[in-house]
Structure formats: C-alpha cells, structure tokens
C-alpha cells in the first residue's frame, strides 16, 4: 500500500513538472493557471494543446510499456523479456510506418494504431513460437535480435522509398521515440487501445502468480494457460502497438522498471504488474522532462536516455544469466 501511494505521488509530481517544463520561459504558477482557466491567451493554447497531451502521453505510454514488460517477464519467467528488446516495439513501428507511407492513415486515422497492433501481434506470436513456453534467455534474445533487425531494416526501407525528402529523417524518430509536438489527436488515437490492452494485462495477475510454481501446478490450480497466453499476446500488442504508433519505439522501460520494483513487491508477478505501470509512467515522464531540460533546442530522442539507463542494466542481467546461457 505504501509503495502504491508513493508511486502515485511520484507520478503526480512528475506530471506537474512535465507540464511546467518546455522551451518557452514561462513561470510555473502562471502556466498552470493558464492550463486551468482558458483565458484565450497563447499561453493557454500552449498548455492545453501542447504540454497537456505531451504529459498525458508520457504517463500513458510509460504505464503500458512498464506493464507489458512486467507481464511478459511474468509469463516467460525471464527478466530479459521486454517489448523493445524482443522486437515487438520495432515491429509496431514498422506497422505504423507502413500505415503512414501507404496513405492509409490519412483516410482512416485508426489505421495507424491498428497496423502497429497487427505487426505487434505478429512479433509476439513469433517470439512465443521461437522461445517456447519456458522462454530460455538465449532463444528469447536471439529471436528478439532477428525480429528487431528485420523490422528496423524494413522500416528504413519504407522510409527511404518515400517521395518525401524528410521521411528518411523520420527513421530516428521511429527507432528512438519522441513525444515532441504530439497533440490530443494522438492521445485519443492511442487511449482506447491502451485501455483495452492494460485491462487484459492487469487481469493476468492471478495466473502469473500461479505460473511461478510451474506450468503443471498452475494448471492444477485451475489456470487456463492457453487463455492466459492469448490475453498476454493481445494485451501486449495493444499496449505496445498503440504506444509505438504515436511516439515511436521507446525501449528499455519494460526492462528497467520491473527490475527496480521486483524486490519492493516481494517478486509477486501480480503486484509487479500495477507497480510497473506506475513506475513506467514515472520513468517516461522523467525522461521526457530531461530531454526538454538537457538539450531544449535539439529534440533529443527519448530512446537515447532510456538506452543510457537501460543498456547497462541489460548487460548486467545478461552477465547474471550467463550460466543459463552457457
């Protein structure tokens, strides 16, 4: 309970900090006033149309990415399972790029998240097929590398073939992720998918707890393993697909956050789910504040910061599991 309250307070604090950080030098109280009362000034427009959707998206995306990481790790019983690392984010980015480059997303806005979701489903299915039910680290990581590489190459190809001279520069956005200049259009586009995905993943708690005892024991406890698996696939795909469709592939959130919070929840997968959602929201909010405060004029990508934090941890985890991999 204390952990939950602490995390909620942290997310709330970072949310407010995110609202008052930006390139325009405006005082905190003044900008928050402009957010609450629409006084028709340009500052109100900035607060309501630019900073509010940005902070909301940071929180939402962080939450679903943290949640997806915790759910996948619980299901595969492997701390290395993370949507970004195993190629689900990369595949979603490919789906989103295809929807944009074919012009489909112009005709039907929903095509953007749906295409990202579709590719995410494919990637999760591939991972589960390749890694097997127990998900040993070596097959998981190899499958992830293969899927990431293929998705990244196809994304680059699609953007290089575009007649638009700026499309090639978009490759960085899709690979590293950014929340710059997102709007409420993106919030509304992603929110329904994220809500459904998060609900599916949060419903996995009991099954994941039982799964820590092994598959046979879990089945004996009445857990429907194939149903669990289906909810995991659809939930992860909806969460990661929607997040990637609007903000690009943001890696390592689902790796770092569950790793940090696992001791605090006594390694119970069910508690780790909600804790990772809150922790993920806090982490992406913090990273998005940092990209604006560190290099305000440079549109630093979120993925850069995430990798600086996440990659060393990833190496550490690989080092720890080398016995299993040998």
């Amino acid at each position: 309970m204390r952990l939950a309250l602490g995390l909620i307070a942290l997310v709330a604090l970072l949310f407010v900090l995110s609202l008052i950080s930006g390139q325009a030098p405006v005082g905190a109280s003044q900008s928050l006033r402009a957010l609450i009362t629409d006084d028709g000034t340009p500052l109100s427009v900035v607060m309501r149309e630019i900073r509010l959707p940005r902070a909301l998206l940071a929180a939402m995306i962080g939450a679903v990415l943290g949640l997806s990481g915790a759910a996948m790790q619980g299901y595969l019983r492997n701390p290395l399972a993370e949507p970004g690392l195993i190629g689900v984010s990369g595949a979603s980015a490919l789906g989103a790029v295809l929807a944009i480059q074919t012009g489909l997303s112009l005709m039907i806005p929903l095509a953007l998240p749906l295409a990202a979701l579709g590719m995410a489903v494919l990637a999760v299915l591939l991972i589960l097929a390749l890694a097997g039910p127990r998900g040993t680290s070596i097959t998981l990581i190899l499958a992830g590398i293969a899927i990431s590489a293929l998705a990244g190459a196809l994304t680059s190809l699609a953007l290089n073939l575009s007649p638009n001279p700026f499309a090639a520069a978009d490759i960085v956005f899709w690979m590293m992720g950014s929340l710059a200049d997102r709007s409420f259009t993106h919030v509304w586009l992603a929110a329904p998918f994220m809500a459904v995905g998060a609900a599916l993943l949060l419903s996995l708690g009991r099954g994941l707890d039982a799964l820590t005892l092994g598959e046979d024991a879990a089945q004996a406890l009445g857990v429907n393993l194939s149903g669990l698996r289906l909810r995991l696939i659809l939930g992860t795909a909806a969460c990661v697909g929607a997040a990637t469709a609007v903000a690009g592939a943001i890696g390592f959130v689902g790796l770092v956050v569950p790793h940090l919070l696992r001791p605090a929840v006594g390694a119970r997968p069910s508690s780790l789910l909600w804790a990772s959602a809150l922790g993920g929201a806090a982490m992406v909010l913090a990273a998005d504040i940092a990209v604006r405060e560190l290099l305000p004029a440079r549109d630093l990508k979120l993925g850069v910061l995430m990798a600086l934090v996440g990659a060393p941890l990833f190496l550490h985890l690989i080092y720890k599991t080398r016995k299993e991999m040998a």
């Binding site: 149309e49 575009s162 001279p165 700026f166 499309a167 978009d170 956005f173």
Partner: peptide, 16 residues
Amino acid sequence: DYPGQARAEEVLTHPA
C-alpha cells in the same frame, strides 16, 4: 507540402 508523408511535417498541422 512535399509528396508522401513524413512525421517531420506533422508540426505544420498541429491542432494548437
């Protein structure tokens, strides 16, 4: 407006 789509161009149509 260049042919094709690019995320970089979205800033020109931002609702704000």
